[in-house]
Amino acid sequence: MSPREITSEKLLQMYGRMFRIRQVEERLATVQAAGELPGPVHLYIGEEAIAVGVCAHLSDQDWICSTHRGHGHFLAKSDEIQKMVAEVYGRATGVCGGKGGSMHVADVSKGILGANGIVGGGIALAAGAALSAQTRGTRNVAVVFFGDGAANQGVLFEALNIAALWRLPLILVCENNGYSEFSPTASVTSGEIWNRATPFGVPGRPVDGNDVREVWAAAGEAIERARSGGGATLLEMRTYRLRGHVEAEKSFLSRSYRSDAEVEQRREREPLRLAMAALQGAGVTADAIAKVEEKERAAVRAAFEYAAESPWPAPGAAFEHMFA
């Protein structure tokens, strides 16, 4: 698949979804600083092209597993902005009844097996989901998003091994944003992450994770191969996190781990900016783009109003959904 195959309609649609995620995350940053959220939040700002470019190929019957930085994955795969924002607010109207919060947004009915507070925790779950899809004879796939830090968890190698042996319809999407929490990736990770697939005979490749067209093309090829029985792929999406590892981190870090100048410099190639340039290059009018942005802004504003006005879970709800 080539990035050139994307129609301008598809590109505008993906831009709109990236814009939606950015709006949600920026508002979450503000309400977090105002003390409205009950727990820590890890924002996806700067990485939107990955979730959107990958999930553009998936249906509700395909599975995704996500990370502690999971809002973008949820919003790329589901239209339920209100339920997700209400979950981050910890309200009863949230997608998990307000009991999961930011790091556990999940909706099985949409194929979202959930964000995950455990680093690398989604990798084995996705391998299991891929095995389920294969065993049931479907053409569905499982995608796992994980960070560069999680690439050093042993479970990645276990999953690659079994996915290669059984030709599982599994797409391993590493979001390499340059920092494993507060450590530069190169200081904790040896070699190239994409190349960790090679010894298992699984195709691996690096992708420009800030260019939604490149993500869309690489993911499309990997997902199509998985659907037709060709097995797993490891995609290393190279990106950059424009916010901290976690909001309010400056209040507890004794020194900073990157310079403001570096962040500003990386902003020049941030995904919304690149997608906007691509839209203009494809001849999409400023009017058409503004219309999409306004619609997304209104939907996000409404979702935050809904969340802030929603009730807290009843105390008795703490004892529900404890056992499967």
Binding site: Q32, A33, A34, G35, P40, A248, F252
Partner: peptide, 12 residues
């Protein structure tokens, strides 16, 4: 009017 609340800046 908006109330600013004390946020949780550390897990504990």
């Amino acid at each position: 009017m908006i109330e600013l609340k004390l946020g949780r800046i550390g897990m504990n």
